[in-house]
Amino acid sequence: MNPLTRRRLDLFIANRRGWWSFWIFLVLFIFTLFAEFIANDKPLIISYKGDLHFPIFKTYSEKYFGGDFDTEAFYRDPHVQSLINAEGWMVWPPIRYSYATINYDAFPAPFPPSSENWLGTDDQGRDVLARLIYGFRISILFGLTLTITSAIIGIFAGAVQGYFGGKTDLIFQRFIEIWSGLPELFVLIILASLVTPNFWWLLLILLLFTWMSLTAVVRAEFLRARNFDYVKAARALGVGEFRIMIKHVLPNAMVAAMTMIPFIMSGAVTALTTLDFLGFGLPAGTASLGELLLQGKNNPDAPWLGFTGFIVIAAMLALIIFISEAVRDAFDPRKVVK
């Protein structure tokens, strides 16, 4: 391993809080990636008449199991369950609710935490824990996608400005100044009401503003590094501009960018939560943390909704910030490994 990488890794590990946060976050993320296998209203495996079936991947009609209707089997129905159990067995996920499953027994909704719904149900009778798992996943996936895309655009834009300087830089800078002067939240709300927002629309709309967060630092690094002696040497060797940018200048800028990227991530997660909370976010019915918070606000008599939402969001953002701090330490040239 390159000694510089080794040193950075050592520094990252030396920040114990960040190192632990990183692992907790990774475990939670991988765990929620498989949400369908943890919280679902379909069994994981069905053995029916000696054959194995996997209803998560394939739809079976109720008739297939000897029921009355030619629609998808509703496995939570005691009638369907008894039909399957008579001819075989079922393995259920630990939580027998999907994010949209309504528990009609828990009445009136919202129903407080019980042995059936560990974190209670929301105001439409859906299991809060199941929605939390799906909501966490979509927040992180959204945050990651937005961070990566805005980092790519931001680094590219910053690189072009900083490396070529002069008029390119001047025009680009003025454009960014005007663009960042737009009232972000209002533009988002207006755009969100023009289209029917889904995951990709929201990503695109938020991307309009988040790509600028990295351009400034990357531009500054490129401005500085384009006059380094080894860049001049490469130019004197006749190396092409593009290769100089990638090979000689970009690694310098990546240090500054890497330090900022986790902070962009926490910003992205917060932005999605905000939009969901305001009702301009993901389509109705999607499990999301912002929507859970909104329910908490609308149902002050059901404190488990607000508390759950608040604690999970606070914990998730804290984890990301702790990891960010460790990343920042890792790239700090003055930090000493103890």
Partner: peptide, 9 residues
């Protein structure tokens, strides 16, 4: 170049 610390990537 002058500074051998700055002239090598």
């Amino acid at each position: 170049f002058q500074d051998p610390y700055a002239s090598l990537n």
